[in-house]
Protein backbone atom coordinates (compact mmCIF):
# COMPACT_ATOMS: atom_id res chain seq x y z
CA UNK A 1 0.00 0.00 0.00
CA UNK A 2 1.54 3.29 -0.94
CA UNK A 3 1.70 6.19 1.42
CA UNK A 4 -0.98 8.20 -0.27
CA UNK A 5 -3.49 5.43 0.05
CA UNK A 6 -2.52 4.92 3.66
CA UNK A 7 -3.27 8.52 4.37
CA UNK A 8 -6.56 8.35 2.61
CA UNK A 9 -7.57 5.28 4.57
CA UNK A 10 -6.60 6.92 7.82
CA UNK A 11 -8.76 9.90 6.98
CA UNK A 12 -11.57 7.52 6.16
CA UNK A 13 -11.19 5.81 9.53
CA UNK A 14 -11.70 9.10 11.27
CA UNK A 15 -14.65 9.90 9.17
CA UNK A 16 -16.46 6.68 9.94
CA UNK A 17 -16.56 7.96 13.47
CA UNK A 18 -17.39 11.56 12.64
CA UNK A 19 -19.69 11.03 9.75
CA UNK A 20 -22.08 13.86 10.42
CA UNK A 21 -19.44 16.55 10.27
CA UNK A 22 -17.17 15.08 7.68
CA UNK A 23 -19.24 13.66 4.85
CA UNK A 24 -18.55 16.81 2.85
CA UNK A 25 -14.84 16.10 3.11
CA UNK A 26 -15.31 12.59 1.81
CA UNK A 27 -17.33 13.90 -1.07
CA UNK A 28 -14.58 16.37 -1.92
CA UNK A 29 -11.81 13.81 -1.58
CA UNK A 30 -13.54 11.32 -3.75
CA UNK A 31 -14.32 13.90 -6.40
CA UNK A 32 -10.89 15.50 -6.44
CA UNK A 33 -8.41 14.46 -9.09
CA UNK A 34 -5.57 15.92 -7.05
CA UNK A 35 -4.58 14.29 -3.79
CA UNK A 36 -1.80 15.80 -1.75
CA UNK A 37 0.47 13.60 0.33
CA UNK A 38 0.08 15.24 3.70
CA UNK A 39 1.53 12.78 6.18
CA UNK A 40 3.84 9.79 6.05
CA UNK A 41 4.29 8.71 9.68
CA UNK A 42 1.59 6.35 10.84
CA UNK A 43 2.97 4.40 13.80
CA UNK A 44 1.06 5.63 16.85
CA UNK A 45 3.27 6.50 19.82
CA UNK A 46 0.80 8.10 22.20
CA UNK A 47 -2.78 9.25 22.01
CA UNK A 48 -5.36 10.85 24.25
CA UNK A 49 -8.89 10.48 22.93
CA UNK A 50 -10.32 12.18 26.06
CA UNK A 51 -12.80 9.38 26.64
CA UNK A 52 -12.79 9.43 30.46
CA UNK A 53 -14.85 12.17 32.10
CA UNK A 54 -13.23 14.30 34.80
CA UNK A 55 -9.70 15.67 35.06
CA UNK A 56 -7.38 15.00 32.11
CA UNK A 57 -5.10 11.93 32.33
CA UNK A 58 -2.35 12.93 34.78
CA UNK A 59 0.05 10.45 33.19
CA UNK A 60 0.12 12.66 30.11
CA UNK A 61 -0.87 16.17 31.19
CA UNK A 62 0.41 18.65 33.75
CA UNK A 63 -0.50 22.31 34.17
CA UNK A 64 1.03 25.74 34.21
CA UNK A 65 -0.68 27.67 37.02
CA UNK A 66 -0.89 31.43 37.54
CA UNK A 67 0.25 34.32 35.38
CA UNK A 68 3.91 33.49 34.76
CA UNK A 69 6.24 36.45 34.30
CA UNK A 70 4.61 39.38 32.46
CA UNK A 71 1.60 37.24 31.52
CA UNK A 72 3.71 34.30 30.30
CA UNK A 73 5.98 36.73 28.48
CA UNK A 74 3.15 38.02 26.29
CA UNK A 75 1.18 40.35 28.59
CA UNK A 76 -1.61 37.76 28.65
CA UNK A 77 -4.48 38.69 30.96
CA UNK A 78 -5.66 35.34 32.30
CA UNK A 79 -4.79 33.38 35.44
CA UNK A 80 -4.27 29.71 34.57
CA UNK A 81 -5.80 27.16 36.92
CA UNK A 82 -6.40 23.41 36.96
CA UNK A 83 -9.93 23.84 38.35
CA UNK A 84 -12.70 21.94 36.60
CA UNK A 85 -14.25 25.33 35.75
CA UNK A 86 -11.29 25.89 33.43
CA UNK A 87 -10.27 22.39 32.36
CA UNK A 88 -12.26 19.17 32.26
CA UNK A 89 -12.95 16.14 30.10
CA UNK A 90 -16.60 15.61 29.19
CA UNK A 91 -18.35 13.52 26.53
CA UNK A 92 -15.19 12.70 24.65
CA UNK A 93 -13.69 16.17 24.61
CA UNK A 94 -11.05 18.04 26.54
CA UNK A 95 -12.79 21.34 27.34
CA UNK A 96 -10.68 24.38 28.17
CA UNK A 97 -12.87 27.27 29.27
CA UNK A 98 -11.84 30.92 29.43
CA UNK A 99 -13.95 32.80 31.96
CA UNK A 100 -14.37 36.46 32.76
CA UNK A 101 -14.02 36.45 36.54
CA UNK A 102 -11.84 38.21 39.06
CA UNK A 103 -9.41 35.56 40.33
CA UNK A 104 -6.14 36.05 42.25
CA UNK A 105 -5.93 39.60 40.89
CA UNK A 106 -6.51 38.65 37.25
CA UNK A 107 -9.65 39.55 35.27
CA UNK A 108 -9.90 36.20 33.46
CA UNK A 109 -9.21 32.52 34.12
CA UNK A 110 -8.31 29.74 31.73
CA UNK A 111 -6.01 26.70 31.50
CA UNK A 112 -2.71 25.60 29.98
CA UNK A 113 -1.88 21.89 29.77
CA UNK A 114 1.59 20.53 28.99
CA UNK A 115 3.31 17.17 28.70
CA UNK A 116 6.63 18.43 30.10
CA UNK A 117 8.39 15.63 32.02
CA UNK A 118 5.61 13.21 31.01
CA UNK A 119 5.88 12.92 27.26
CA UNK A 120 8.72 14.35 25.19
CA UNK A 121 9.80 13.29 21.72
CA UNK A 122 12.07 14.37 18.91
CA UNK A 123 10.55 14.12 15.44
CA UNK A 124 7.24 12.57 14.54
CA UNK A 125 3.77 13.57 13.60
CA UNK A 126 1.88 15.62 16.21
CA UNK A 127 -1.75 16.37 15.58
CA UNK A 128 -4.94 17.35 17.41
CA UNK A 129 -8.56 17.77 16.37
CA UNK A 130 -9.90 20.98 17.85
CA UNK A 131 -12.87 23.35 17.74
CA UNK A 132 -11.66 26.83 18.53
CA UNK A 133 -13.31 29.67 20.49
CA UNK A 134 -14.18 33.04 18.95
CA UNK A 135 -14.16 36.76 19.65
CA UNK A 136 -11.69 39.59 20.04
CA UNK A 137 -8.86 38.70 22.43
CA UNK A 138 -9.12 34.90 22.38
CA UNK A 139 -5.74 33.24 21.75
CA UNK A 140 -5.81 29.44 21.72
CA UNK A 141 -2.73 27.44 20.75
CA UNK A 142 -1.51 23.87 20.20
CA UNK A 143 2.27 24.06 20.36
CA UNK A 144 5.60 22.62 21.51
CA UNK A 145 8.68 23.73 23.42
CA UNK A 146 12.19 22.26 23.56
CA UNK A 147 12.35 19.91 26.55
CA UNK A 148 15.66 21.46 27.68
CA UNK A 149 14.02 24.86 28.22
CA UNK A 150 14.85 24.97 31.96
CA UNK A 151 18.59 24.91 31.23
CA UNK A 152 18.52 26.38 27.74
CA UNK A 153 16.15 29.37 27.96
CA UNK A 154 13.76 30.44 25.22
CA UNK A 155 14.26 31.09 22.36
CA UNK A 156 17.35 28.86 22.24
CA UNK A 157 15.31 25.85 23.34
CA UNK A 158 13.06 26.25 20.30
CA UNK A 159 9.30 26.51 19.88
CA UNK A 160 7.01 25.00 17.28
CA UNK A 161 3.52 26.52 17.12
CA UNK A 162 1.46 23.86 15.40
CA UNK A 163 -1.61 26.09 15.59
CA UNK A 164 -2.20 29.62 16.86
CA UNK A 165 -5.39 31.57 16.31
CA UNK A 166 -6.75 35.05 16.87
CA UNK A 167 -10.41 35.04 17.91
CA UNK A 168 -11.05 38.13 15.79
CA UNK A 169 -9.86 36.33 12.64
CA UNK A 170 -12.14 33.29 12.74
CA UNK A 171 -11.03 31.70 9.48
CA UNK A 172 -7.24 31.94 9.87
CA UNK A 173 -4.64 29.94 11.84
CA UNK A 174 -0.86 30.28 11.94
CA UNK A 175 1.98 27.75 12.07
CA UNK A 176 5.31 29.06 13.31
CA UNK A 177 8.80 28.13 14.51
CA UNK A 178 10.84 30.20 16.96
CA UNK A 179 14.57 29.68 17.66
CA UNK A 180 17.73 31.61 18.40
CA UNK A 181 17.85 34.62 16.06
CA UNK A 182 14.33 34.09 14.79
CA UNK A 183 11.90 34.48 17.66
CA UNK A 184 8.81 36.59 18.42
CA UNK A 185 8.45 39.22 15.67
CA UNK A 186 11.22 37.55 13.62
CA UNK A 187 9.79 34.03 13.88
CA UNK A 188 9.24 31.95 10.73
CA UNK A 189 5.51 31.78 10.25
CA UNK A 190 2.76 31.18 7.74
CA UNK A 191 -0.99 31.49 7.97
CA UNK A 192 -3.69 29.28 6.53
CA UNK A 193 -7.17 30.63 5.81
CA UNK A 194 -10.25 28.48 5.29
CA UNK A 195 -12.38 29.30 2.29
CA UNK A 196 -16.07 29.79 3.10
CA UNK A 197 -15.64 28.31 6.57
CA UNK A 198 -14.25 29.16 9.99
CA UNK A 199 -12.47 27.41 12.84
CA UNK A 200 -15.01 28.11 15.61
CA UNK A 201 -18.01 26.33 14.08
CA UNK A 202 -16.59 22.85 13.64
CA UNK A 203 -13.62 20.61 14.37
CA UNK A 204 -10.42 20.78 12.36
CA UNK A 205 -7.21 18.73 12.47
CA UNK A 206 -4.04 20.71 13.13
CA UNK A 207 -0.73 18.93 12.75
CA UNK A 208 2.94 18.92 11.94
CA UNK A 209 5.15 16.22 10.56
CA UNK A 210 8.67 16.79 11.84
CA UNK A 211 11.82 15.09 10.56
CA UNK A 212 15.50 16.05 10.81
CA UNK A 213 15.10 17.81 7.47
CA UNK A 214 11.85 19.75 7.80
CA UNK A 215 8.72 20.63 9.73
CA UNK A 216 5.55 20.28 7.62
CA UNK A 217 2.41 22.13 8.77
CA UNK A 218 -1.06 20.91 7.84
CA UNK A 219 -4.72 21.66 8.52
CA UNK A 220 -7.16 18.85 7.77
CA UNK A 221 -6.06 17.46 4.43
CA UNK A 222 -4.08 20.51 3.34
CA UNK A 223 -0.32 20.72 3.71
CA UNK A 224 0.24 24.49 3.74
CA UNK A 225 3.86 25.03 4.76
CA UNK A 226 7.24 23.38 5.05
CA UNK A 227 10.08 24.89 7.06
CA UNK A 228 13.60 23.50 6.57
CA UNK A 229 16.95 24.37 8.17
CA UNK A 230 17.59 26.57 5.12
CA UNK A 231 14.55 28.69 5.99
CA UNK A 232 15.72 29.81 9.44
CA UNK A 233 18.30 32.60 9.85
CA UNK A 234 19.93 30.92 12.85
CA UNK A 235 20.69 27.58 14.43
CA UNK A 236 18.24 24.75 13.63
CA UNK A 237 17.27 23.65 17.13
CA UNK A 238 14.55 21.18 16.14
CA UNK A 239 16.80 18.17 16.62
CA UNK A 240 15.98 17.17 20.20
CA UNK A 241 12.92 16.20 22.27
CA UNK A 242 10.05 18.69 22.60
CA UNK A 243 6.94 18.57 24.81
CA UNK A 244 3.36 19.51 23.88
CA UNK A 245 1.26 22.44 25.20
CA UNK A 246 -2.41 23.22 24.72
CA UNK A 247 -3.76 26.47 26.11
CA UNK A 248 -6.37 29.17 25.72
CA UNK A 249 -4.92 32.60 26.49
CA UNK A 250 -7.00 35.76 26.90
CA UNK A 251 -5.50 39.00 25.61
CA UNK A 252 -1.79 39.59 25.22
CA UNK A 253 0.41 41.25 22.66
CA UNK A 254 -0.31 38.72 19.90
CA UNK A 255 -4.06 39.20 19.92
CA UNK A 256 -4.99 42.35 21.88
CA UNK A 257 -7.43 42.57 24.76
CA UNK A 258 -11.03 41.37 24.66
CA UNK A 259 -13.54 44.15 24.09
CA UNK A 260 -17.13 44.76 25.12
CA UNK A 261 -18.37 42.48 22.35
CA UNK A 262 -16.28 39.47 23.37
CA UNK A 263 -18.66 36.81 24.68
CA UNK A 264 -17.61 34.83 27.78
CA UNK A 265 -17.22 32.05 28.66
CA UNK A 266 -15.38 30.77 25.61
CA UNK A 267 -14.43 27.13 25.09
CA UNK A 268 -11.71 25.29 23.22
CA UNK A 269 -12.76 21.69 22.55
CA UNK A 270 -10.09 19.09 21.84
CA UNK A 271 -11.34 15.80 20.41
CA UNK A 272 -7.97 14.06 20.46
CA UNK A 273 -4.21 14.49 20.56
CA UNK A 274 -2.16 11.87 18.70
CA UNK A 275 1.55 11.48 18.17
CA UNK A 276 3.05 9.18 15.54
CA UNK A 277 6.53 8.31 14.47
Amino acid sequence: MNQRNQFKLRIMNRIWLRISSACMLVALLSCSDYEQTVTTMNELVIQDEFDTNGAPNSAIWGYDIGTGTNGWGNNELQYYTDRKENVTVQNGYLIITARKESYQGSPYTSARLLTKGKFEQAYGRFEARIRLPWGQGMWPAFWMLGADIDTNPWPAAGEIDIMEFRGQEPSTVLGTVHGPGYSAGESISKSYTLKNDRFDTGFHVFGIEWTPKYVNFYVDDVLYNQITPADVPGEWVFNKPFFILINLAVGGSFVGSPNSETVFPQTMLVDYVRVYK
Binding site: W134, P170, S171, N196, D197, R198, D200, T201, V263
Partner: peptide, 9 residues
Protein backbone atom coordinates in the same frame (compact mmCIF):
# COMPACT_ATOMS: atom_id res chain seq x y z
CA UNK B 1 -23.49 31.46 0.84
CA UNK B 2 -20.50 32.84 2.70
CA UNK B 3 -20.17 29.93 5.12
CA UNK B 4 -18.65 32.31 7.66
CA UNK B 5 -21.83 33.85 9.07
CA UNK B 6 -21.66 32.25 12.52
CA UNK B 7 -22.28 32.39 16.26
CA UNK B 8 -25.94 33.50 16.12
CA UNK B 9 -27.16 35.45 19.14
Amino acid sequence: KLGTVAQPR
